[in-house]
């Protein structure tokens, strides 16, 4: 095995990603590499395309141009006899099954209890035994501090609690990559902290994470790298210190000035 070369290859590799909605260009050529174990925080004003880019990574949105690779596999397409073909829905589902996602609106399944939410994909998609899935789900729910609510329904929980369950649900598929799409934007201010604490502990454990957020504090404390997007392009990227303390680009500077 040429493990050394695999280790060096990025887990996520996006090249020249373009995306338009009804002739409005939202992404205008995004290049981004994310190494295994890295925590990348994407910042940027509303409409900068950051959420759209995140959704392209697990093909919730298709892309018009460019390519995205996760763990060495091109998302949504395969090369066959030198020709690029779209993958079948089933093959795309398989690719997605290794990528965990946390949504702004939590999107828990309201008709299932907390525990059922967490074990749904491990049993139904990954074919794990019920006992194994339940044991693991209980561990994960303990990790996010939700052990006391395993049998509650999502609507009986606060927003922060729902989001922590959603994180446990995403972890339950043993993801190689976790995507967070503005995970705290729908929360009351006093509930943001509990979710960020959970996310920080995941970052410390070496999970590969791409986080779209407005939480500058989280970027400063947990990110290995900060990417600033504006107008469908990556304007600036680097270490949190470099981007947040000494932004080079005027648009980064004006964006950050609003948070000080």
């Amino acid at each position: 095995m040429t493990t050394s070369s695999i280790d060096q290859a990025p887990l996520v590799r996006a090249r020249n990603v373009h995306k338009a909605f009804h002739h409005v260009e939202v992404l205008k050529g995004i290049d981004l590499d994310v190494k295994a174990g890295e925590v990348v925080v994407i910042l940027g004003p509303s409409g900068s395309g950051k959420s759209t880019f995140l959704r392209c990574i697990n093909r919730l949105e298709t892309i018009d141009k460019g390519s995205i690779f996760v763990d060495g596999e091109q998302i949504g397409y395969q090369l066959r006899n030198g020709k690029l073909q779209p993958l079948s829905n089933r093959a795309i589902a398989t690719q997605r099954s290794k990528i965990g996602m946390v949504f702004q609106q939590f999107n828990l399944y309201p008709h299932m209890t907390v525990l059922q939410n967490v074990i749904e994909a491990p049993i139904g998609v990954h074919g794990r035994s019920r006992d194994e899935a339940i044991t693991e789900a209980r561990e994960l729910l303990a990790k996010v501090g939700m052990s006391h609510k395993v049998n509650a329904y999502p609507r009986q929980l606060s927003g922060g609690q729902q989001q922590r369950v959603a994180i446990a649900r995403a972890l339950a598929i043993r993801p190689t990559l976790m995507l967070f799409d503005e995970p705290t934007s729908a929360l009351d201010p006093e509930l943001v902290g509990e979710v960020l604490t959970t996310m920080r502990s995941l970052a410390d454990q070496g999970l590969t994470m791409i986080v779209v957020t407005h939480e500058i504090g989280f970027a400063r404390e947990a990110a290995d790298r900060v990417v600033f997007m504006d107008g469908g392009r990556v304007v600036e990227e680097g270490s949190p210190e470099a981007v947040l303390e000494n932004p080079r680009h005027p648009r980064t500077r004006s964006f950050l000035s609003r948070f000080i």
Partner: peptide, 11 residues
């Protein structure tokens, strides 16, 4: 969002 979530989880 429910269909989208199910999709994102590889269903």
């Amino acid at each position: 969002g429910q269909a989208e979530t199910a999709e994102a989880f590889g269903m």
